[in-house]
Simulated assay, not measured.
Amino acid sequence: MNTRAAHQAAPLSEAVRTRGGQVKEIPLIRIAPEERREVKARAFQAFLNADWAVFTSANSIDVTVDLLREYSDKSLKELFAGKKTAAVGEKTKKKLEGFGLVADLLPDTFDAEHLASLLVNDMSSGQTVFYPKSKQARTVLQDRLTKAQVKVLAAELYDTVPEQRSENALERSLLHREIDAVMFASPSAVHSFYRLSSVKARARFEERGCYAVIGPVTLEALRTYGATAIAVPDKYTIEGMLDSISQYKPDSDTEMGAEK
């Protein structure tokens, strides 16, 4: 099961099909962009004033591009000229490249903690960071940069909310064991899964199925609900997640990759 938002589901579904698998798309989240003009106007000015633009998700890039196109007639290359750009992971880096932009900084480990450490080491004194994020975003990146006396111009430009229209399809798929693995690409998808599904349906699925995650923060979110049937990848990419699913052993007492 591909739980990504409808507009982002295609790459993951295609990767599954390329491997000969079948995929059911049941989006558990949707993106709700910020609509208040005063908030967007402040965010646009913050972008213009910043030395760095830091992106921790593909969604943060999409909403930033929409913001810039709404408030300026200049091209993206012109608007980003003179700024450095940081991406939290390979997927975010490729999203930037899709808009003709380049990530100047990319951590070896794809999470906010390692990205913050790289930024602190790479930034010059007095530089500022534009940080577009969701209302559900963790505070770790902003907290670590602020602690290092980096000025962060944070802008909450969107919210990630449960996709209520998927509730019936999700419940039916779990109860009838129509799927072997549920794939999560964000903590928000995990939270929506537990909000939209029943205990009975999850228990039925977990008799044979497993959960799969694409990042450490998503794994952490899943573990908070007590889930144990988790296929943990060695590398947090789409391919790594799919590898972990194919290698998962239902009778194992430990999660795949847990000892690595």
Score class of each variant (00 low, 15 high):
residue 1 M to S: 07
residue 2 N to Y: 05
residue 4 R to E: 01
residue 6 A to L: 03
residue 8 Q to Y: 12
residue 10 A to Y: 06
residue 12 L to C: 04
residue 12 L to I: 04
residue 14 E to K: 15
residue 15 A to G: 06
residue 16 V to L: 10
residue 19 R to L: 13
residue 21 G to D: 05
residue 22 Q to P: 00
residue 22 Q to C: 08
residue 22 Q to T: 11
residue 23 V to H: 08
residue 24 K to F: 09
residue 25 E to Y: 10
residue 27 P to D: 12
residue 27 P to F: 09
residue 32 A to H: 15
residue 34 E to A: 12
residue 36 R to V: 13
residue 36 R to F: 01
residue 36 R to N: 15
residue 40 K to C: 15
residue 40 K to E: 09
residue 42 R to T: 09
residue 46 A to Y: 09
residue 47 F to L: 13
residue 47 F to W: 06
residue 49 N to C: 14
residue 51 D to S: 06
residue 53 A to S: 15
residue 56 T to R: 00
residue 57 S to F: 04
residue 57 S to Q: 02
residue 58 A to T: 07
residue 64 T to D: 08
residue 64 T to M: 07
residue 66 D to I: 14
residue 66 D to T: 10
residue 71 Y to G: 01
residue 71 Y to S: 08
residue 71 Y to R: 09
residue 73 D to T: 14
residue 73 D to K: 11
residue 79 L to Q: 11
residue 79 L to C: 15
residue 80 F to Q: 06
residue 80 F to M: 04
residue 82 G to E: 12
residue 82 G to H: 11
residue 84 K to L: 13
residue 84 K to D: 08
residue 85 T to N: 06
residue 85 T to I: 15
residue 86 A to G: 00
residue 86 A to P: 02
residue 87 A to I: 02
residue 89 G to F: 09
residue 90 E to S: 02
residue 94 K to F: 05
residue 94 K to M: 11
residue 94 K to I: 06
residue 96 L to K: 04
residue 98 G to H: 04
residue 99 F to R: 08
residue 102 V to E: 11
residue 103 A to L: 03
residue 107 P to R: 00
residue 109 T to D: 00
residue 111 D to H: 00
residue 113 E to I: 08
residue 116 A to N: 01
residue 116 A to W: 09
residue 117 S to C: 02
residue 119 L to M: 10
residue 120 V to D: 02
residue 122 D to V: 03
residue 124 S to D: 03
residue 126 G to L: 15
residue 130 F to E: 11
residue 132 P to H: 03
residue 134 S to T: 00
residue 134 S to W: 00
residue 135 K to S: 12
residue 137 A to R: 11
residue 137 A to C: 03
residue 140 V to I: 06
residue 142 Q to P: 00
residue 142 Q to W: 02
residue 143 D to H: 12
residue 146 T to F: 05
residue 148 A to G: 08
residue 149 Q to W: 10
residue 152 V to H: 10
residue 152 V to L: 14
residue 152 V to R: 15
residue 153 L to C: 06
residue 154 A to M: 02
residue 154 A to I: 06
residue 155 A to L: 13
residue 155 A to R: 10
residue 160 T to N: 04
residue 160 T to G: 07
residue 163 E to K: 14
residue 165 R to M: 09
residue 165 R to L: 10
residue 166 S to K: 05
residue 166 S to W: 08
residue 169 A to V: 14
residue 170 L to Q: 07
residue 171 E to K: 08
residue 172 R to C: 03
residue 173 S to C: 09
residue 175 L to Q: 12
residue 175 L to F: 07
residue 177 R to M: 06
residue 179 I to P: 05
residue 179 I to K: 04
residue 181 A to I: 12
residue 186 S to Q: 10
residue 188 S to P: 10
residue 194 Y to L: 13
residue 196 L to I: 06
residue 197 S to P: 01
residue 197 S to M: 09
residue 198 S to N: 04
residue 199 V to N: 13
residue 200 K to T: 10
residue 204 R to P: 01
residue 204 R to S: 13
residue 207 E to C: 02
residue 210 C to W: 02
residue 210 C to T: 09
residue 212 A to Q: 05
residue 214 I to G: 05
residue 214 I to R: 11
residue 221 A to C: 06
residue 221 A to R: 11
residue 222 L to A: 04
residue 222 L to Y: 07
residue 223 R to C: 07
residue 225 Y to M: 05
residue 225 Y to I: 07
residue 228 T to S: 15
residue 233 P to D: 08
residue 234 D to W: 05
residue 236 Y to D: 00
residue 239 E to S: 15
residue 240 G to P: 02
residue 246 S to M: 04
residue 247 Q to I: 08
residue 248 Y to A: 01
residue 251 D to I: 13
residue 253 D to E: 11
